[in-house]
Amino acid sequence: MQLKALLAVPELGLNLKAGRSGLEREVKGGYTSDLLSHVMSRAREGDLWVTVQAHQNIVAVAVLLNLAGIIIAGGIEPQEETLSKAEAEGVPIFTTDLPIFEVVGRLYALGIRASNFYAALAQG
């Protein structure tokens, strides 16, 4: 599924705030945490990352791991520096008023799974 397809799902209530140039990216899985050290060691390339962390370092982590994009949930508005960095790097950032639990539940219902977890299962 491409990111831009999620933008068309009204149940997610997504607002694109930055990084329109990356909307064609394929969402290969999902990851949720607000601790960037956890994301850096556990998220996988192509993951859509759901968080309430809005600090500018989230863009650096997304670039580092080549994540598909970032959803900032819970009605939290990212800082201006975060959005300008995301725009410069072409990392799509969405906001939604939905609480994180709802966002992740609805993404799961759309078929998105935790790629790091299933990769580990596949390896036994």
Binding site: L35, M40, Q56
Partner: peptide
């Protein structure tokens, strides 16, 4: 800083 934000922010 490093647990929550990963690296020293530029």
């Amino acid at each position: 800083l490093l647990a929550n934000l990963g690296v020293v922010p530029p």
